[in-house]
């Protein structure tokens, strides 16, 4: 089974799935917190329009989980706020 890493845990997926689909299939519904209210968000529109499913992939923040295709060995992490480090 193919897996990628999400916040340190292995997420099994089927090649062809996006990161968002794989996370939902694994029971995760949210993978970022908002920058104002700090509340959790996950998929909403599912087609790249709403940018609610932003997540950090391979250290690169603000990737749409509904668009990025899952690949074995990827490192995916929950995104806090803007996803960028403060000074």
């Amino acid at each position: 089974m193919s897996t990628f890493e999400f916040d340190g845990a292995g997420i099994e997926f089927r090649p062809g799935q996006t990161i968002g689909a794989a996370l939902v299939a694994a029971g995760q519904v949210s993978w970022r917190t908002t920058r104002v209210g700090g509340v959790r968000r996950g998929l909403f529109c599912g087609i790249g329009i709403c940018f609610d499913c932003l997540v950090t992939v391979e250290g690169e923040p603000n990737q749409r989980a509904c668009l990025v295709v899952a690949e074995p060995g990827l490192t995916v992490t929950t995104q806090e706020g803007t996803g960028h480090e403060h000074d």
């Binding site: 949210s30 959790r40 968000r41 996950g42 998929l43 909403f44 529109c45 599912g46 087609i47 509904c66």
Partner: peptide, 13 residues
């Protein structure tokens, strides 16, 4: 809330 989506989002998934 996470888990609330558009209908099209459910369909795309």
């Amino acid at each position: 809330l996470p888990g609330v989506m558009t209908v099209g989002g459910l369909q795309a998934l």
